[in-house]
């Protein structure tokens, strides 16, 4: 199992349990297919209820998350396993992609367009679905449509990315180009 470190170890603003997050992350990393000795750091900003998340670095794999992203939307300040799996699963699949030669040409996360970001997320969350984590597919589709257009071409691209395995950065770029061509500028 991966070596996971969560900071902070104890929480003052929220009722999170760092050990539980460590344990969940270890299991997720195994299912994602990361090597057993992978080091993973999760830095949680517990002082904000917002939900931004980011893959900060690859060695060690470092995820920066705002507390809201791990929280139960129905019960403020409580940890939600579903939310942790949703965020960590998606980011670890993206980390795994970046460790693969097929993604060597991918720009840094900060340089990705919203469309590229969402296409990559779709590809990652589709694999979370097949890992048995039952992510919210319709939420992801809505997200995708917002970025890639409310068109049949965008919907077809979403399905393809969701169901795909073994894609490369070039495949994601091609999907983005395809939806771009079909997008009608909003009037």
């Amino acid at each position: 199992m991966a070596k996971v470190v969560v900071t902070p170890e104890t929480f003052a603003f929220v009722s999170f349990d760092a050990n539980h997050i460590v344990e969940l992350t270890g299991k997720i990393a195994d299912k994602v297919g990361l090597p057993a000795d992978t080091e993973i750091r999760i830095e949680i900003d517990e002082t904000t209820p917002l939900g931004r998340t980011k893959l900060l670095s690859l060695d060690p794999i470092t995820l920066a998350v705002e507390g809201g992203s791990f929280e139960d939307a129905k019960r403020p300040r409580q940890l939600s396993d579903t939310s942790v799996i949703d965020v960590v699963g998606r980011l670890l699949f993206r980390a795994k992609d970046r460790l693969d030669a097929g993604f060597a040409a991918a720009p840094d996360d900060d340089a990705l367009t919203l469309q590229q970001h969402t296409a990559w997320d779709t590809y990652a969350v589709g694999r979370c679905d097949r890992a048995g984590w039952a992510p919210q597919k319709k939420r992801r589709l809505y997200h995708f449509r917002n970025r890639h257009g409310f068109t049949d071409v965008a919907d077809a691209a979403f399905d393809r990315l969701w169901n795909a395995d073994g894609l490369t950065w070039a495949d994601l770029e091609a999907a983005c180009a395809e939806t771009e061509a079909a997008r009608v500028p909003a009037g």
Binding site: T47, T48, P49
Partner: peptide
């Protein structure tokens, strides 16, 4: 009781 709301001591990044 949510201290993360403005004025509660939480950072707002």
């Amino acid at each position: 009781s949510d201290r993360r709301s403005p004025g509660g001591g939480g950072s707002t990044s």
